[in-house]
């Protein structure tokens, strides 16, 4: 029942001083190891996917994989059109089927559609910056979007976030929940970015960088990038009915 917990060679530490906001928001007490009980090997992923599927069957959700048009204005967003696709896998390499993938990002000028974003860059009236889809039977997701821009932030002098796309996934259990960021290959801002550098090893950092994929690139339309995502799975086996639990629920 005991999992290994967070792997410190993959996951960033909570306190990473170069990223200033961690200094007052990271816990100082040691984390308490938590066994994977029924509360942890279950999770909302399957139920959320099932509910979304009902929407995807209709007209509303189906368009949410195309961020170049899903603002619904009838006009395409400005910028360099790209295709971002990949597989969502568990740590054994098995595809996670029908799992929800949500993304959000800046527009081509590096501006979020968000009241807090005061970056002096234009909003694109035709760009929402949010998309969602379910993985297919091979665990594949696919979005059409525009390449996000870099933007300045207040962390340190002349600080710029490298271009990135935020990803949110539930996966099959409470253990699998992941929020992360996808970066673009060859971006000179990555080695200067404390959020990217907070990932403890170069090998783990490389897993956040999409690969240019010419086989995904669509002739005359959009450049292709591939970004696979691997989620933790639960360690424990499903709970069979047993006496104590039945007593407890009566």
């Amino acid at each position: 029942m005991d999992g290994p917990g967070r792997d410190p060679s993959t996951f960033p530490p909570y306190l990473y001083e170069a990223y200033r906001a961690t200094v007052r928001r990271s816990p100082k007490q040691p984390l308490i190891p938590l066994p994977q009980t029924l509360s942890e090997i279950t999770g909302p992923g399957p139920a959320i996917s099932a509910a979304l599927h009902q929407t995807v069957q209709g007209a509303v959700g189906a368009e949410d994989t195309d961020l170049t048009t899903n603002m619904g204005t009838g006009t395409e967003a400005m910028g360099e059109r790209i295709i971002v696709t990949g597989r969502v896998l568990d740590e054994h390499g098995a595809p996670l089927v029908g799992t929800l993938v949500e993304i959000w990002q800046t527009n081509a000028a590096g501006r979020y559609r968000h009241r807090v974003d005061q970056h002096h860059a234009p909003l694109d009236p035709n760009f929402l910056g949010y998309g969602r889809c379910l993985t297919d039977t091979n665990g594949v997701y696919r979005f059409v979007t525009i390449r996000p821009g870099a933007y300045p932030w207040q962390n340190h002098p002349n600080a710029w976030r490298p271009a990135h796309i935020h990803f949110s996934l539930f996966g099959p259990s409470w253990v699998s929940r992941l929020v992360t960021q996808m970066y673009f290959p060859g971006d000179p801002l990555q080695p200067l970015d404390p959020i990217f550098n907070s990932v403890p090893t170069g090998a783990a950092q490389a897993r956040l960088v999409a690969q240019y994929a010419h086989d995904v690139t669509q002739e005359g339309y959009a450049l292709g990038f591939r970004f696979d995502i691997v989620l933790r799975g639960p360690r424990a086996t499903p709970f069979e009915p047993f006496e104590a639990a039945q007593r407890a629920t009566r």
Binding site: D7, T10, F11, P12, Y19, A21, L89, D90, E91, H92, G93, A94, E102, W104, Y112, R113, H114, V116, D117, L128, G129, Y130, H166, S168, L178, V179, T180, Q181, I195, F196, S198, V199, A203, A204, Q205, R207, L208, D228, I229, V230, L231, R232
Partner: peptide
Amino acid sequence: MSGRALTPSQTVGPFFHIMLR
């Protein structure tokens, strides 16, 4: 099926409300 290295986490940042539809 071979073992796969996990994808690291990153902060949700200040702009996650875009996701809260």
